[in-house]
Amino acid sequence: MSELATEPLLKVSGLARYFDVSRPWLARMIERLPRQTLKAVDGIDFEIAKGETFSLVGESGCGKSTVARLVVSLYAATKGTILFDGVDLSKLHTRTDIAPVRRRMQMIFQDPYASLNPRWRVADIVAEPLRAFGLEADDAARRKRVDELLRQVGLSPADADKYPHEFSGGQRQRISIARALSSNPEFLVCDEPTSALDVSVQSQILNLMKDLQKRLGLTYLFISHNLAVVYHVSDRIGVMYLGRLCEVADAHDLFAKPQHPYTRLLLDTIPDLEMTGRERVPVAGEVPNPINPPTGCAFHPRCPFAEDRCRQEAPVLRQTESGLAACHAVEEGRIPATEAVTPPQLP
């Protein structure tokens, strides 16, 4: 049984999700257009160990939120498997099979204005998972649990009788967190939990999430486009580009020794708050249309190191000195040693 301890809590392999974005049938027939698929996530693998924070970063449209939704089975996977604590989620079909696994994973969404029902009182919102999973049978016990949860996220039990509109964005995100925690989950998927918030409120929520992780032993899948936030919260990071992972490494290594050219580009875009006077070199080009992605490595049109092989053959993740990277140039040693973004000096 000893190997069970090292078994990751979440293991994703070959995960893909395609969306049909074709025009309606009639329009297609008249204009003789083929069907079109959008490969939002196109074969990704990663593992998350118990108690760890794994982050996915990337620009909009790279598929990071789709991964979040796949993991909590809000979307069905087109291909690939998701093992949660050894259980294959795609094999669970009936509600009764899914419920015990679902209880153990919860999600926090980006927009605290859209993710709370405006007509429900906070007590009902927070207690919804309790009712859904039949956890606290009687009203009094449920109310007690709600009070405890609200206190845990820094709100007061008196807030339970209010409606969401009476709270600020940060407080609403606290309510979302309380709701996510109510079924005693081990695993939280956080999809841009702070990007709708102001910085001073963001720091409150990030601190709260870290405290809760320590206290409750939570495992996080954290989705964000903000590299500084990701650096602050993560143990390991996966960088996504057009539906694929292009680099996976420990948080420190990723920032100190980025391998993949796209990771280097992203790191170079971090605004310089240390006033080192470093001129950012903006990289030309934009993320291509995912309906019609470039052949070979999807990043090759923007990559300064692209060669013929990059245009023809899609790279796979391979071991590098600091983690995994999907890049022919890194594999062949064509890229000059990492020009790390100089880590800013402490003032």
Binding site: S200, Y231, F255, V341
Partner: peptide, 10 residues
């Protein structure tokens, strides 16, 4: 406000 901004490398 400045202290609440997460920084890479800190």
């Amino acid at each position: 406000l400045m202290g609440s901004i997460p920084l890479v490398g800190h």
